[in-house]
């Protein structure tokens, strides 16, 4: 089993482990942020470039450094590899650059976005961004579209992480949405006349790191931090039936997969559990869900994010539907 050292901490991991996975095994203090990689989705990762690290020593056999930063989510560890993440000022700086690019075209509508409070991009800009954006041009805008009766796509917020496309490709039988156009004007879109009707399509909502794909059945629009997450399960023929119920008072506002501390769902759930079981009676309650993801929900520093200079350029206006 190869041994790898990340920011001075060494761990032994199975052959074929990526640098990112090895970092997660060591702990959050050495783990780079990951906006597009998703452990359970094959070929995910490599796109967003937030997880870049410096390989200062390739391996015992080849002790040279890799000249350019690498995507830790798509680079396997080798025996004796040495990696610099937060201990490399160059990487910290480069990541700021990447975050700035990701935010360049992102709307500044956090106060009215459903994802606020559990948005990975918000976390990212708070933790890894610089205080200011230098982008002064009009941002890309798209119309909201419905992907079938349950899911809404608000492309304006999308960071093109490709996770939802991988869900559609790998979890559902007939892929009906994908990426249209190229380059800066690429967009997630659907085969217009067909709705997304598939038992597992709802998982796109859970994998979306931002508020681009949202649950249309989320009953009363409410800030996540006013809701209480509760773990529950049911006997389901289609999926594992293990979910998180999000309560306000005694009403179930929405149902999601259960997420681990890295914000990834542990097991995918079916659309029936997600969209149709909104009564407490439908579920066996296990108890409150501990949110241990390092996130603005738990840290509750949401206010801090909205206020500073990041948002000074545009007024925050609700987007028309």
């Amino acid at each position: 089993m190869p041994k790898v050292t990340i920011d001075g901490k060494t761990i032994e991991v199975p052959q074929g482990t990526t640098i990112l996975q090895a970092a997660r095994m060591i702990g959050a203090e050495v783990t780079p942020p990951a906006m597009c990689y998703y452990t359970s989705l094959k070929t995910s990762g490599g796109y967003c470039r937030t997880c870049i690290v410096k390989v200062s020593k390739m391996s015992e056999a080849n002790p040279n450094p890799i000249p350019k930063p690498v995507a830790s989510c798509r680079t396997n560890v080798e025996e004796g590899m040495e990696v610099l993440n937060y201990t490399s000022p160059e990487i910290v700086e480069a990541r700021k650059g990447v975050v700035e690019f990701l935010l360049a075209n992102h709307p500044l509508d956090c106060p009215i976005c459903d994802q606020a409070g559990e948005c990975h991009l918000q976390d990212l800009s708070y933790d890894h961004g610089s205080d200011d954006t230098r982008y002064e041009f009009e941002r890309r805008k798209f119309k909201k579209i419905d992907l079938g009766p349950f899911i809404q796509l608000h492309m304006t917020r999308c960071i093109l992480c490709y996770r939802c496309v991988k869900v559609a490709d790998q979890l559902t039988d007939e892929r009906v949405h994908g990426v249209l156009n190229r380059g800066e004007v690429s967009e997630i879109s659907t085969y217009i006349t067909k709705a997304i009707e598939n038992d597992f399509s709802g998982n796109m909502i859970d994998v979306c790191p931002v508020g681009a794909l949202t649950d249309k059945t989320f009953r009363f629009k409410s800030r996540v931090w006013f809701t209480n997450p509760v773990s529950a399960h049911r006997d389901c023929k289609k999926c594992c039936g293990k979910v998180t119920l999000w309560y306000k008072g005694d009403e179930v506002l929405r149902v999601t997969g259960r997420k681990d501390k890295w914000g990834e769902v542990e097991e995918f759930i079916c659309n029936e559990c997600r969209f149709e079981k909104k009564q407490t009676l439908d579920w066996e309650i296990e108890g409150p869900t501990a949110i241990d993801r390092h996130s603005v929900i738990s840290a509750n520093h949401y206010e801090k994010i909205v206020e500073p200079s990041l948002f000074k350029l545009n007024d925050i206006k609700p987007f028309e539907d």
């Binding site: 796109y47 093109l160 690429s186």
Partner: peptide, 21 residues
């Protein structure tokens, strides 16, 4: 380069457009 970026990765997709602007 802006026109020809495939758009997969954020630095190239956003960066080429920004520089052109």
């Amino acid at each position: 380069y802006h026109h020809e970026s495939c758009g997969q990765c954020s630095p190239c997709r956003e960066g080429t457009a920004w520089m052109e602007k």
